[in-house]
């Protein structure tokens, strides 16, 4: 995102969050963290903004206003989903009155033929003000991303060997005379 290497003006869009994230966003601009020294400015209108700090799980009631606010931000724009609610719907992700965070919102946007803007995620409940600052700097390409996806899959050979051992134990205890393949029938009780 070369466009945003310099000062980023942000508009804070709340789609029904609990206020936790909203106050942490203000905290990031308060004297201790003072995001303004990094060129971040909170603006009062989506028309003036480069980026949206998006909080809340998107309630049904707020949906029309949220859609229009996102549309009002001039291109090119980016969205920062701040907090657990915006990133993944939070604790109310499957409630009847909630769309489930930014993903649900984008589903609605796509159904209306609007392309969702580039989005960054800042998890936390609420995220520390420093985490929000890190998110903004990440969007500007000034810091490295620390969070990476991690995957682990158990090794097949080892696990199968362990399973065979356990099955052998089974034959030791239960004195099954038939080979294990044949024992693998429902109602296996009949075989011994």
């Amino acid at each position: 995102m070369k466009l945003y290497r310099r000062s980023l003006w942000v508009f804070h869009l709340n789609s029904g969050s609990c206020n936790g994230c909203d106050i942490e966003i203000l905290n990031a601009l308060a004297p201790r963290q003072d995001a303004e020294r990094l060129g971040v400015k909170l603006v009062g209108s989506p028309r003036h903004a480069d980026a949206i700090l998006f909080t809340g799980p998107v309630t049904r009631e707020a949906l029309p206003s949220v859609v229009r606010a996102i549309q009002a931000v001039p291109e090119p724009k980016i969205v920062l989903a701040v907090g657990a609610c915006a990133c993944g719907g939070g604790i109310w992700h499957d409630s009847y009155c909630v769309l489930g965070g930014i993903q649900g919102l984008y589903r609605v946007l796509k159904s209306m033929g609007i392309t969702p803007p580039k989005t960054f995620f800042v998890p936390g409940c609420p995220p520390k003000p420093e985490a929000i600052i890190q998110g903004i700097l990440l969007a500007r390409g000034l810091v490295r991303q620390k969070q990476v996806r991690s995957e682990y899959y158990e090794e097949q050979a080892l696990a199968e060997k362990a399973e065979v051992d356990l099955h052998r134990l089974f034959h030791k205890y239960f004195w099954v005379r038939v080979p294990p393949e044949a024992a693998r029938v429902k109602y296996g009780v009949a075989y011994y």
């Binding site: 029904g16 969050s17 799980p57 309630t59 409630s95 009155c97």
Partner: peptide
């Protein structure tokens, strides 16, 4: 505008000791 259905979630999905967090 912030009606999120808290009461309903607590009555249906969550147990006594999970509700304090919501």
């Amino acid at each position: 505008m912030v009606h999120r259905g808290i009461e309903k979630i607590a009555e249906s999905r969550l147990t006594y000791n999970q509700v304090p967090f919501i």
